[in-house]
């Protein structure tokens, strides 16, 4: 397959070096730039780092962090760590899913929202907690409060 040019990937490869051990770090940077990891990009990375495409795919699918398809506009990460679990994280998760009409780890039809289960945001003092778009953390939630927060992003 003829690979196109991807300047964002080139930049990452320059930063980490064109060697096999740079793969995960290059994938990180690429996903940050593009939002996800399209197939053509994986082909390109495989050629540039001289790693078989099958191995690149193997790494991408091994790690939860990497996405092969475009993600929702807003990702709500619902913490299901132990502390959040014993303090009612499941009720928060159910309320969010019910409101959006999706199951955990699904994306709404309009592509706007996704609700994901994560293992511990490390905010156990604020349990139960959610993180929206990986940066806004909300804690000490009830199902009602969670819906209120969700509506702010709608």
């Amino acid at each position: 397959m003829e690979a196109k040019n991807f300047p964002a990937v080139d930049m990452e490869i320059r930063k980490w070096g064109a060697k096999p051990e740079s793969l995960i770090q290059v994938l990180h940077g690429t996903q940050e730039a593009l939002g996800y990891l399209p197939k053509e990009v994986l082909v390109y990375i495989s050629e540039k780092l001289n790693i078989p495409l099958s191995k690149v795919y193997g790494v991408v699918t091994f790690y939860n962090f990497f996405k092969l398809t475009k993600d929702a506009d807003h990702v709500i990460m619902t913490c299901m760590g132990t502390a959040c679990y014993v303090k009612g994280g499941e009720a928060v998760l159910n309320a969010l899913c019910e409101k959006l009409g999706i199951k955990p780890n699904e994306i709404t039809k309009d592509g706007k929202f996704a609700v994901r289960i994560v293992r511990c945001l490390g905010c156990c003092g604020l349990a139960p907690a959610i993180a929206v778009d990986g940066k806004d953390i909300y804690g000490k939630l009830t199902p009602e409060k969670a819906i209120e927060i969700l509506e702010r992003y709608m």
Binding site: E21, S22, L23, I24, L27, H28, K55, V59, Y63, N64
Partner: peptide
């Protein structure tokens, strides 16, 4: 990149090597 097993030292080594 989000894999619990990488806290295990030999898995961590593989991950640092990009695998």
């Amino acid at each position: 990149a989000g894999a619990f097993v990488c806290g295990e030292e030999t898995a961590l080594i593989n991950s640092i090597e990009g695998k």
